[in-house]
Amino acid sequence: MEPDMKLDEMGQVKIAPEVISLIASMAASEVSGVADLTAGFTGDMLEKVGVKSPSKGIKVQLGENEVLIDVYLIVEYGVVIPEVAKEVQKKVKLSVETMTGINVTQVNVHVQGINFQKEPKEDMKK
């Protein structure tokens, strides 16, 4: 993936996709109701051996002057999922656009799991 380039009077400004991922990751993590971002199978395996990615759970597809962002997350139990997702979309879009000036066309939210205090299966009562 090529870093995003902007022509300026003083020269070019290049923003690497990793930077956009990091901004999106931080913005998504700050939303109330988001328990964690998921790194996927490979990321989880790497995390187990100590390799941590600061922009885990974020996939960035860069266009010429636009970006499409996929956010993979786990939400807290009890929250209204569409509301949390909407908040994530708004916050990620705002943060990336404010900090980089790149137009965010879409923020797709993938809810991969729910964070419970206890395992629900074990709690079933007679």
Partner: peptide, 27 residues
């Protein structure tokens, strides 16, 4: 949604269903 797509995975839905059944006596 207006900002993009929301995808809720099957695993997440299953967890929600399990949680909703947690307090039902007899299961």
């Amino acid at each position: 949604t207006s900002e993009g797509e929301l995808i809720i995975s099957n695993d997440a839905i299953k967890s929600l269903i399990l949680k909703s059944l947690k307090d039902i006596k007899g299961l």
